[in-house]
């Protein structure tokens, strides 16, 4: 049974359809990457899965159970983690408090998980008392991912985790995503840095105008000359 399944999803904002039938499937040990031009509905798709906009057609399933249009709150309880692209930290809270908020629903495990996150993102440990808003962009992204991981999700949704980061940090983040996935967390992320992201992707979804254009393994998409020409900038 696939971990996360999206079948013919339609939806959008205020009566305007952005998603016109998107299909996606992710297994528990896979990294899925959504790429595509601006306005293709990549982030919208992620938000639709996380219950942040109303889906008007189609279905979303988590481990075979329908979760279409459940509230984010319910989805977090069911083991979904979401890292928005912007405003993904609590700026005035310390790093440590940010992480604790991620484990709000499971306070008993917070101390143990915090240690794991600090091992996973060592820079956060030394800055744990500092307000998260004072950190650099890459470190903020670590706080954001750490916060989502504190809930021990079975699937993690990342919205452009490397946006605005230097190449050095970008590679570091992608490495972390691989490690997170290796630990048994399914990952679905939207990426602008398409080539680099597809390199670590088990599955790649190329969206255009709210529909799937290509769906294949990451490597296969990178090798496909048509994908390369139209979507990866040659």
């Amino acid at each position: 049974m696939p971990l996360l399944e999206a079948i013919d999803v339609h939806g959008g904002y205020g009566g305007m359809n952005i998603l016109n039938g998107v299909d996606m499937t992710i297994e528990a040990d896979e990294i899925g990457v959504i790429v595509g031009p601006n306005g293709a509905g990549k982030s919208t798709m992620l938000k639709a899965i996380f219950g942040l906009l109303t889906i008007t057609g189609g279905e979303i399933r988590l481990r075979g159970e329908a979760i279409t249009n459940l509230s984010p709150h319910k989805l977090v309880e069911r083991g979904m983690g979401f890292v928005p692209q912007e405003k993904n930290i609590f700026p005035s809270l310390s790093v440590e408090e940010n992480l604790e908020m991620g484990a709000f629903l499971k306070p008993a495990t917070a101390t143990r998980l915090k240690q794991q996150i600090y091992e996973f993102f060592p820079p956060l440990k030394e800055k744990r008392r500092q307000p998260a808003g004072e950190l650099s962009g890459g470190q903020r992204q670590m706080v954001a991912m750490g916060r989502a991981l504190m809930n021990e999700p079975s699937v993690l949704l990342l919205d452009e985790p490397t946006a605005g980061l230097s190449p050095l940090y970008m590679n570091e983040i992608f490495e972390r995503v691989k490690t997170i996935n290796a630990a048994g967390v399914g990952v679905l992320m939207v990426e602008q840095n398409a080539k680099q992201a597809l390199r670590i992707a088990d599955k790649g979804f190329v969206l255009a105008a709210g529909q799937n254009r290509f769906t294949d393994t990451g490597q296969a998409l990178l090798d496909d000359p048509e994908v390369a020409r139209s979507f990866l900038g040659g």
Partner: peptide, 22 residues
């Protein structure tokens, strides 16, 4: 825990909701 959640909600209500804060 609740006090921190309160500060979190004042910082970023959407993220507080996405973190499962009631």
């Amino acid at each position: 825990r609740l006090g921190k959640a309160m500060r979190a909600m004042s910082d970023n209500p959407d993220l507080a909701r996405a973190s499962g804060i009631n």
